[in-house]
Design a protein around this nucleic acid. Structure first.
Lengths: 209, 209
DNA sequence: GTCTATAATCGGATAGAC
DNA sequence: GTCTATCCGATTATAGAC
């Protein structure tokens, strides 16, 4: 029966508002209004709006780094890969405010640039590790140049799919369905997979839609 | 020896500034400063900042619709496709301020939403037409479901590649090289092309890098 | 910890002289 | 067409009472 600390409520509400309205469109006044606390109170807990953004980013970074710590030399199944993608898209969706106005946000909170780029890099590396696992298991056949290109493509898609998808229905920005993104990702690797795995992707990827 | 109209200079300079700093970070004062005219003068030519954005968007829309008017039932060569991609990426790069903070910009200038979505739709359709031309020439083999996914992927990539790419060097945002994007696009269709065309892509796509 | 009141700043936009 | 001066509104942030 412990009551939630105001500080945490501020973080929660800010995240929701950032995601649905876009960070630049959310004022500190709107946040405090939504929480039914005074603006002064908000500034008692955080010395600036940027501080809120940074603390949210901390959470995002931690989640991502945890998720992207893919062990090398492990045999991974297609199912596991699908699950990994699902987790990834959910994490991105939870912090989609970062991606929706990436350039703008990163330019205003420039300390985040390096950290964001590091995460990006980790994503690409994770995909490479996973693809190489497939390659080791003979379930994927791909040349080096194409692998490079594919991993970048996968990274791009993780970042932007949800923004791209919500463009079709900008009105309702509350929720995002990660399914379509996973489907798209699986179709990116599909052509390079062995016949059996291709079949599996064709059969199972529908369930994501 | 005719001197360029102030009105046009405002549009030019705004576009440059929007692209390099991001539209939300460019104030009307900055624009007039850069042009060494007074803010009042700027407002003589445009009744609001939104008006400048809209007029730039008009140009963007016209260019895109012109480019995307792909005739059906025409046999298109891989070279022509590459050229088309190049033009497309250049057009997007010229108006990249739209894409860099898409959600934010479209939410503040909501009249542009429908028009932007229409362009998006046209892109996907154009890619479908082109792929079907390849298919008709037996140079591409792809199932319906994969084609759908591929065309969406191509559209996503056209939109976001340059933003994604410049994330690696956020410092220098003046110029964008469309080459890498074209390379990436060609690699998306590569697995579905006939052996000969695959070879051609592998050989020529390097020149884009 | 929370409030009210208010300062400080900034950006968009207008009025009116030249 | 262009300028200077200025207003207005919004937003971030602070001071000080409770």
């Amino acid at each position: 029966m412990k009551k939630v600390k105001t500080r945490d409520r501020i973080l929660d509400t800010s995240l929701q508002l950032f995601n649905s309205l876009g960070e630049p469109n959310v004022t500190t006044l709107l946040i405090s209004d939504e929480l039914e606390i005074s603006p002064g109170n908000l500034y008692y807990h955080f010395k600036s709006k940027g501080d809120i953004v940074e603390e949210l980013f901390d959470g995002f970074e931690a989640e991502m780094l945890d998720l992207l710590a893919v062990p090398e030399d492990v045999e991974i199944s297609l199912d596991q890969f699908g699950f990994f993608l699902h987790m990834l898209f959910e994490a991105v969706a939870r912090y989609r405010f970062m991606y929706q106005d990436l350039v703008n946000v990163l330019s205003r909170y420039s300390q985040l640039q390096v950290r964001f780029r590091r995460i990006l890099k980790k994503k690409t590396t994770a995909f490479r590790t996973l693809c190489e696992s497939f390659r080791g298991q003979q379930t994927m056949a791909i040349e080096e140049a194409e692998l490079e290109s594919l991993c970048e493509q996968l990274t791009l898609t993780v970042c932007y799919w949800s923004s791209f998808d919500t463009l079709s229905h900008l009105d309702n920005r509350e929720s995002v369905d990660p399914g379509k993104g996973v489907y798209q990702m699986l179709h990116l690797i599909l052509p390079y997979m062995a016949a059996e795995e291709q079949e599996q992707i064709r059969l199972t990827s529908h369930t994501y839609l």
